[in-house]
Design a protein around this nucleic acid. Structure first.
Length: 151
DNA sequence: GCCAACGTTGGC
DNA sequence: GCCAACGTTGGC
């Protein structure tokens, strides 16, 4: 079982949307490194939901992989902003996963708080210039985040 | 709104 | 294969 983090802009899709909808298809990822991580995701893996580009930046809650990697349908849809004319239906370029709501944190665990945690000083998320929208989380980082949440 | 950091594109 | 130009991300 692995741990991951996925970023979303809450003005587009937030933890509240996921809580209401219960499940969501995570599509539209058009970055190869992020896609490669998504291909490694397996059912039952845990996913932190991170709010970016907003007022209260940080980890907002937890989800679980419900269905692991499948061809992202938006790549075949000419009406979708994520349409990719160059994708091959026999060997689709882009991957989506389905996630299920697990919990919403009582308070956002803010980026500022994460940066203060000495256990997370090497955490990819808090490194300057990090723009990857899908990140793996080590067991150690997972423990540190959950520990900070309880504190 | 600004801008640094990064990924992608395309000419050569 | 190099690299400048461009577009996007995302914190501030």
């Amino acid at each position: 079982m692995k741990y991951w983090l996925m970023k979303t802009e809450p003005s587009v899709f937030s933890i509240n949307n996921l809580e209401m909808d219960r499940t969501a298809v995570w599509d539209g990822v058009r970055n190869y490194q992020a896609r490669n991580y998504m291909r490694q995701m397996k059912k039952k893996d845990s996913v932190f939901i991170y709010h970016s580009n907003c007022k209260e930046i940080g980890i907002a809650g937890l989800a679980e992989i419900l269905e692991d990697g499948f061809a992202d349908p938006t790549q075949f849809n000419p009406k979708s902003p994520y349409f990719d004319a160059k994708t091959d239906p026999q060997n689709p370029r882009w991957t989506a996963v389905k996630i299920e709501f697990k919990m919403k944190f009582k308070q956002i665990l803010t980026l500022g708080e994460l940066k203060q945690n000495p256990l997370l000083k090497d955490f990819q998320l808090i490194q300057k210039g990090n723009r990857l929208s899908v990140l793996p989380i080590s067991d150690k980082e997972y423990q540190a985040i959950m520990g900070q949440l309880r504190a």
